[in-house]
Simulated scan of single mutants.
Amino acid sequence: MSNKEEKPDEKQSSWKDFIYNPRTGEFIGRTASSWALIFLFYLVFYGCLAGMFSLTMWVMLQTLDDYTPKYRDRVANPGLVIRPKSMDIGFNRTIPQQYDRYVKHLESFLQQYNDTVQEKNELCMVGEYFNQDDAAEKKVCQFKRSLLRQCSGLADTTFGYAEGQPCVLVKMNRVIGLKPRGDPYINCTAKRETPLQMQYFPAEGRFDKMYFPYYGKKAHPNYVQPLVAVKLLLTKQDYNSELTIECKVEGSDLRNNDERDKFLGRVTFRVNVSE
């Protein structure tokens, strides 16, 4: 019976000795010198790993350009997008609350195109590329919102939504170094048997060459894309029915018929106006 009673004390003593053994000076089974050697080994080991990683990152960064991405494998041709930022534009023209969000979005988007802001930019030569190979920070050609005329939101603050003839802004995505050949312009059509009347601003919906090329966000921080405003001249016969509108960039070498990418050089949206 006495031997059985001594076993718990022996077990407790063995655990204490494992944590710290005063006879051998060991802590968790190792002496201080042993722990020092292990700590030194891992310090050198992980230091070498950190050094190799830092060297690899430094070598890789030397191959990068601060202004142009090394690999641009997305698309060489721009996609088209619209503002307001909605593929389904639907509202009752007699209820301002229904189209107010579209108006606010357009007004907010066009703030950077205000004439007072754009007058600080350069007056460029129409029809010529604005090449700037030497300048560290590239200059920007003026694009005033007043060029959008009836779709500028200046004379008509509702952008035509109150009268049931809404304006839609079309712009190309930015592609560094892009110089579209020919004379690119926007052409929109309604997917139905009878054509839909539209107005384009600037005239004929053209993207002038002076807004190209784009040099990237760091070199071209104040760059603004050229816009084409499309005013849909809807009539009462067009109300209360969904219209599918497709806009394409035409007149240049830019692609607009890739079935794998529905937004490459084109954009499709729907409009439904009621009264």
Rank of each mutant, 00 (worst) to 15 (best):
M1V: 10
S2W: 04
E6W: 01
D9P: 00
S13K: 13
S14C: 03
P22C: 06
R23Q: 13
T24D: 08
T24F: 05
G25H: 08
E26L: 05
I28Y: 15
G29R: 07
G29C: 03
A32K: 10
S33M: 02
A36R: 01
A36M: 01
I38W: 00
I38Q: 00
F41G: 00
Y42T: 11
Y46V: 03
L49Q: 14
A50I: 08
G51S: 14
M52W: 11
M52R: 11
S54C: 06
M57I: 14
W58T: 14
W58G: 05
M60N: 10
L64Q: 15
L64F: 14
R72H: 09
D73S: 12
G79R: 11
V81Y: 14
V81S: 07
D88Y: 09
D88M: 06
D88W: 03
I89F: 03
F91Y: 15
N92H: 08
I95M: 05
Q97E: 12
Q97R: 07
Q97K: 08
R101C: 00
R101Y: 07
V103R: 10
K104G: 00
H105C: 02
H105P: 00
S108I: 05
F109V: 02
L110W: 11
Q112E: 09
Y113K: 07
T116D: 13
E119V: 06
E122V: 11
V126Q: 12
V126N: 10
E128F: 03
N131S: 05
Q132K: 08
Q132D: 08
D133V: 06
D133K: 09
A135G: 01
A136I: 15
E137P: 00
K139H: 07
K144R: 15
R145H: 04
C151R: 11
S152N: 04
D156G: 10
F159N: 08
G160I: 11
A162Q: 15
E163Q: 14
G164Q: 11
Q165E: 15
V168D: 00
V168P: 01
L169A: 04
M172K: 15
N173A: 09
R174K: 15
V175C: 07
I176H: 07
K179D: 01
R181H: 05
G182N: 05
G182F: 11
G182M: 10
D183F: 13
Y185K: 10
T189P: 00
R192W: 02
E193H: 05
M198H: 03
Q199P: 00
Y200I: 09
F201N: 05
A203N: 09
E204L: 12
E204D: 13
G205V: 03
F207L: 12
D208Y: 06
M210H: 09
F212D: 04
K217Q: 11
N222D: 14
Q225W: 05
A229C: 13
T244W: 02
E246C: 06
K248P: 00
V249K: 02
E250Q: 15
L254T: 12
R255H: 05
N256P: 03
N256F: 04
K262N: 11
F263E: 15
L264Q: 15
T268S: 14
